[in-house]
Write a protein that binds this DNA or RNA. Structure first.
Length: 894
RNA sequence: GGGCGAUUAGCUCAAUUGGCUAGAGCACUUGCCUUACAAGCAAGGGGUCAUAGGUUCGAGUCCUAUAUCGCCCACCA
């Protein structure tokens, strides 16, 4: 490992090197080991067609932090990676690619098309995997799975057949969401509803027996009227109830439509009369069933009107709408048109307007599965973080409708159902059946449809472990520990995994679900291709380094809140990694010795600052660990950041410089070097889950130099590489509250003197004299630290004592019970000094007012807890003391 | 129409569950190229915690409205 470090950190030199090293040494790999406790995460499998975006980055950074942290804690960690075959998305991508060669998938036929998809997958499908590696994701790549793998396909078939046998899967003709472009059915939640500024067309339907009279119906989709078979009114609607049973004539078409009564109709909406089109509207479909009406289909699967549309046959549905309106207008059937805002369903893949469509589809009976999933979360077998997502999950499960799982596309898991060509019976089987289960005919034809992609994703936590085989993995890793995902797929994926886990494995698939926020652009908009407002994580990694990207993102991630992101945010992480790099440089430069001797630290060796930094470190370890346990990643990261930068670098390193440069003894220098190295080593450990590359690099350098200098930093360590080393443990022996408090006072005094220097325009290099006066009962042992004080405030002569008087012509600062005086002779600017004191006085008096108001309130002393009252009383006394001191100073200034 | 989240410094966000003068990062001001780091150091300035009520000894925090923004859900044609 290199020991010469350049002045600026260059991530490019080390990131790929370390990733490769870790992976090649099997550090990401896990095998079942019953002597250790497992910690398992299954990755939300990105689409094979996917390219890493910021959402993926956030998602995987969090998972990697959890995995790396638990790995260091000694868990047998498995991060199971893989990709999703993403049926419709992938088919679309490959179709588009073929289109550039002027090939349509129909020309190729099913088998050859699927070959093309596999070819595409093998060529491009690993893009996102490579990108995840760039981020530092420590997945067990030896176990990588793909939802179309042989093993996973077996799991899909097994599940389908099992559910079918249990009566949880059925086939039937229902109205479903149809995408006329993808030409497939979609599940309810694959439809995205968008507000749309449309029109409400009021159309006059004449009475058959009195053609000059009309009933007016309102619709947003006039083209569907061609499939009308009735008009419905509410049975309680006085305007219409007498007309029920009468017959209307459908304009243009001339079909006779009975007026029917149905509770569904809302009398207050529109005209209170509804056209009934069971073939093209889900509500009408239900209504049609209730009244035994036979639907009339007028729109074909490609969105084009069929032969029953009469003159409109062959027209696209929207063309037809316009043309039909023209004709209705011409023939005076339009009573009025009102602008109307309503939501329109779109395909979540291609954004085409969804058409409700009647077809033969496979469904999963959701009620029993959902009930089990509800129970599981209510008894906390699954816990959500933040917990508010549980409500969202529950409300979906409580209202869930049966899940349409068949898709009329080619890329996906073919439904394991065969139709007998002789008797029409359905044979559902694990293996290709040789004969019909009913009539034994051998002329069987497999169902053409494939399963919804989410069907296979729902099995991910156990299909990836080898199920339905009884594998050691399944026994050891299932159920997994934590699922990390975003709120967008709580229904699609999380709820369905819980349902399938419970139904198939008889156990929830994971115990915790952590839902992180969504990454937005700096204006708070979603990042999207169409807006072009995305920030490419790989570009950022290239520019700032993977660690900087990870750290910046995680610092911005407060529990479950969305994150507004802009490129400049990554500077923070970069600055921090650079700071860390330079802290390491400092340490390494100051460790090398020509003839190092090994020393054993004795308690008596520790200086004040040593005890302080060790105590602070201990506090940091405790807090960081606790925050990680609570999924508060940004708090955990910020704690270590603050300790590293503002305690370790700003103070500890600065304080011990003289011990290194002008040591009072070899031993004391060695003590400082040892503490410096050990604490920094622990910092690297704490930061490793967040910023793995730089910490591993620096740890290796540090270890090398430390061993040359005969400093043992391996005590208590488990492994020579940080990635496998032990997570820092809090050690109560280092806890030293008094030391931390005294240091805080010292820091205040030092700041006060530096402030005087700054306000009086005195150069930092110029030595000053100072008098520190501690008031009567003040006990902080300042005099024990006069060297430290002199060094850090650059003081020549320092006098510390009780109730000392203010030297003439001095600037002063009141810090709690302490007064700092800096005699300045003619340098002092009396006007500026007086101004400064007056300002401080005003601050204190304002504060005193607040405190007094509380104390003067009778109820306060009566009702507030005693310790709060005492606290306020003490504060009042302290304030009065300070104020009187400042007044004396002001008197002295004249 | 229902639900959820947000509203705190110029910007992006915190605030340990109601109790010490509301904290960070960026930006800003002043002084420093001090032999770890100018991607840095030192010292500062900056806030009626969206609004209005209420509960309480005490409210950024709890309750009730209101406003603005965002997300999700819903079969009103």
């Amino acid at each position: 490992m290199q020991t010469k470090l350049s002045t600026q950190y260059n991530p490019k030199e080390i990131e790929d090197k370390w990733y490769q090293f870790w992976e090649e040494n099997g550090f990401f790999h896990s095998v079942p080991d019953p002597s250790k406790e497992p910690y398992t995460i299954v990755i939300p499998p990105p689409n094979v067609t996917g390219v890493l975006h910021m959402g993926h980055a956030l998602n995987n950074i969090i998972q990697d932090i959890l995995i790396r942290w638990r790995r260091m804690q000694g868990y047998n960690t498995l991060w199971m990676p893989g990709t999703d075959h993403a049926g419709i998305a992938t088919q679309n991508v490959v179709e588009r690619e073929l289109a550039t060669k002027r090939i349509k998938r129909e020309q190729l036929g099913r088998e050859r098309f699927i070959e093309e998809v596999w070819k595409w997958k093998n060529q491009y499908g690993s893009t996102i995997i490579k990108q995840l590696k760039k981020l530092g994701s420590s997945c067990d790549w030896a176990r990588e799975r793909f939802t179309m793998d042989e093993g996973l396909s077996t799991a899909v078939k097994e599940t389908f057949v099992t559910l079918y046998e249990r009566g949880l899967i059925y086939k039937g003709k229902y109205i479903i969401n149809w995408c006329p472009r993808c030409r497939t059915a979609l599940a309810d939640d694959e439809v995205e509803h968008e507000e749309h500024e449309g029109h409400l067309w009021h159309i006059k339907y004449p009475f058959r027996d009195a053609p000059h009279l009309f009933l007016v119906v309102a619709t947003t989709r006039p083209e569907t009227m061609l499939g009308d078979i009735a008009v419905a009114v509410n049975p309680k609607d006085d305007r219409y109830k007498d007309m029920v049973g009468e017959i209307l004539t459908l304009p243009i078409v001339g079909r006779e439509l009975p007026i029917i009564a149905d509770e569904f109709v809302d009398p207050s909406f529109g005209t209170g009369a509804v056209k009934v089109t069971p073939a093209h509207d889900p509500n009408d479909f239900e209504m049609g069933k209730r009244h035994n009406l036979t639907p009339i289909v007028v729109i074909q699967e490609n969105g084009v009107m069929n032969e029953l549309a009469g003159d409109y046959e062959g027209m696209d549905r929207f063309e037809c709408r316009d043309a039909l309106i023209e004709e209705l207008k011409l023939k005076k059937f339009i009573e009025m048109v009102t602008p109307y805002k309503h939501s329109v369903g779109h395909c979540y893949r291609c954004h085409t307007v969804i058409e409700p469509y009647i077809s033969d589809q496979w469904f999963v009976r959701m009620r029993p599965l959902a009930d089990a999933a509800i129970k599981a979360s209510k008894k906390k077998s699954v816990t959500f973080f933040p917990e508010r997502w549980e409500k969202i999950y529950l409300s979906w499960l409580e209202n869930v409708r049966d899940w349409c799982i068949s898709r009329q596309i080619w890329w996906g898991h073919r439904i394991p159902a065969w139709y007998c060509q002789d008797c029409d019976a359905i044979t559902v089987a694990r293996d290709v059946p040789t004969k019909c289960s009913k009539c034994n005919s051998i002329t069987l034809k497999q169902d053409e449809d494939v399963l919804d992609t989410w069907f296979s994703s729902a099995l991910w936590p156990f299909s990836t472990m080898g199920w339905p085989r009884e594998t050691p993995e399944l026994r050891y890793y299932y159920p997994t520990s934590t699922l990390v995902t975003d709120r967008g797929i709580i229904y699609f994926w999380v709820a369905r995994m819980v349902m399938m886990g419970l139904e198939i494995m008889r156990h929830v698939p994971f115990t915790n679900v952590y839902i992180h926020g969504t990454i937005l652009d700096e204006l708070g908009r979603k990042m999207s291709k169409s807006l072009g407002n995305g920030i490419d994580p790989l570009v950022m990694i290239n520019q700032y380094g993977a660690d900087a990207v990870r750290f910046s993102i995680i610092v911005l991630t407060t529990e479950g809140q969305d994150i507004k992101l802009s490129e400049s945010r990554f500077e923070m992480g970069r600055n921090f990694t650079n700071k860390l790099w330079n802290a390491a440089r400092f340490i390494i430069m100051n460790l090398e010795e020509e003839h190092p001797e090994e020393i054993r630290l004795e308690p008596a060796d520790y200086q004040f600052e040593d005890r302080w930094i060790l105590s602070r470190l201990n506090t940091t370890i405790k807090a960081c660990t606790l925050y990680l346990e609570q999924f508060k990643f940004n708090d955990a990261a910020m704690k270590v950041y603050d300790f590293t930068w503002h305690s370790f670098c700003d103070w500890y390193i600065e304080i011990i410089k003289t011990r290194l440069y002008e040591p009072i003894s070899y031993r004391d220098k060695k003590v400082a070097q040892t503490i410096l190295t050990k604490v920094f080593g622990q910092i690297l450990h704490l930061l490793h889950p967040f910023i793995p590359f730089i910490t591993e690099e620096l740890w290796q350098s540090l270890k090398g130099v430390a061993s040359k200098s005969k400093i043992d930093i391996m005590e208590g360590m488990r492994h020579e590489y940080l990635i496998r080393d032990a997570w820092p443990q809090e050690d109560k022996r280092y806890e030293d509250q008094v030391c931390e408090e005294n240091m805080a006072i010292l820091q205040d005094v030092i700041r006060a003197i530096r402030n005087i220097r700054s306000k009086m325009n005195i150069r930092e290099k110029q030595k000053l004299d100072a008098v520190i006066s501690v008031s009567g009962d003040g006990e902080c042992g300042l005099e024990n630290h006069s060297d430290l004080l002199k060094r850090m405030a650059n003081i020549e002569h320092l006098e510390i004592g009780k109730d000392l008087t203010k030297p003439a012509n001095s600037a002063s600062e009141v810090v709690g019970k302490i007064q700092a005086f800096v005699p300045l002779a003619d340098i002092i600017d009396p006007v500026a000094e007086k101004e400064r004191q007056l300002k401080h006085l005003k601050q204190l008096e304002d504060y005193l007012l607040v405190v007094r108001r509380k104390l003067e309130n009778k109820n306060f002393s009566a009702r507030a807890p005693a310790h709060v009252v005492t606290m306020e009383q003490n504060r009042e006394r302290e304030l009065l003391e300070q104020i009187s001191k400042i007044k004396l100073i002001l008197n002295d200034l004249g």
